[in-house]
Design a binder for these strands. Structure first.
Lengths: 196, 196
DNA sequence: CTGAAAAACTAATAAGCGTTAGTTTTGTTG
DNA sequence: CAACAAAACTAACGCTTATTAGTTTTTCAG
């Protein structure tokens, strides 16, 4: 049959992972079969194992690729010397950016990480907790500087992260959306509120 | 073996659905097996079929029970004559209430509705769209009355709904949380913002 | 106590799963 | 063009799945 198409600068393994992200997003990890993944690529299922180790390895690749990207960006923002509010805004905008440009992967990492096996599950959760903690510290700094209301920092962080996750609901109408406007509206809503 | 324990005023079918909600939340619908569900109840898998029609029927029951509860409450709020902001606050508080008191069912309805089969999938999506639209109308009314900033109503609604969904992340520490404080913090954040 | 209905059981089926083994085709390099 | 490696193929394995059929046990009203 045909061969696995390789896009520029990508290995066959990367092509498989990308297709897997799309499939796992649509059907969930447990609801997806290697046979269906293979069919989408245009190949028989056992052929996939020339390039990957297992179905679970695909999920691990997707989840940790996303986690690493968020972590790397957070480190950049923490080091840039802006105010807590400005840093929070940058974090917000990066989450929105990822939701638009790496939708499938982010969605899968958000929804299917539970299906990771040990020790990957623990690793992932720890990384996630660490990320949240650093955002909480950011909010605390903002409160200490008098820029942010004296709220419970963890509640604020969770509210923001959850709100941004909701961008997945917009993806259906991907092409009819003004992403700039959406981004600015959300940033304003989450930082300045809704009430006139 | 033992029998399916029936709690007060509940049929055996309801007991199965309740256990299924807990299992589906933990492992996902596709990741859960009827054998494991039966084991949790203390019965052999085929015995379940004396009370239910199929595995999919369980998911349908959970999803539409949740949808109906939200719809009924929205109708009550719409009819109570309060201001748009007050109505929005009531909606918010009800979502938080459901997240605390019917966690498993709400979680499953939020995450596993994709696995519904036709025509249930279409029904569910339509009901969801209808719910969102009525919240959008609520925000529009608030803007017209000068109570709410002239934002994009659908963005505001989605930001709020997504933020509330994030309460699922708090359930792990269910007993160590002051839910009143959490609720008030979120309502204030989403209506009045974070900035001092 | 008897008999019927409810609810459990055991056994089995067909289908689908991830994955392995072994082989053939394809692509590339000397 | 020969040889070697990469990547596809077919066939099959052992397991799990949801579900059905048929039977036995339990529950409960008359």
């Amino acid at each position: 049959m045909s061969k696995i198409q390789v896009t520029e600068n990508g290995t066959r393994k990367q092509a498989i992972i990308q297709q897997a992200a799309g499939l796992f997003r649509q059907k969930g990890f447990a609801g997806s079969s290697m046979r269906e993944l293979a069919e989408r690529i245009g190949v028989e299922a056992p052929s996939l194992y020339n390039h990957i180790g297992s179905k679970n390895e695909l999920l691990e690749n997707i989840c940790f690729s996303v986690a690493n990207q968020f972590m790397a960006q957070l480190e950049r923002i923490e080091a840039d010397g802006f105010s807590a509010i400005q840093q929070l805004e940058q974090v917000l905008r990066f989450h929105i950016h990822m939701m638009v440009h790496a939708y499938d992967e982010v969605f899968v990492a958000n929804h299917e990480w539970k299906q990771l096996k040990q020790p990957f599950l623990s690793d992932f959760l720890q990384q996630r907790k660490n990320y949240e903690q650093r955002l909480i510290t950011m909010v605390q700094a903002g409160i200490a500087q008098g820029l942010i209301k004296p709220v419970q920092p963890q509640i604020a962080v969770l509210t923001i992260l959850s709100a941004v996750r909701g961008l997945e609901f917009w993806q259906g109408q991907k092409n009819s959306i003004h992403w700039d406007e959406l981004e600015n509206n959300m940033v304003d809503h989450l930082l300045n509120g809704l009430v006139q």
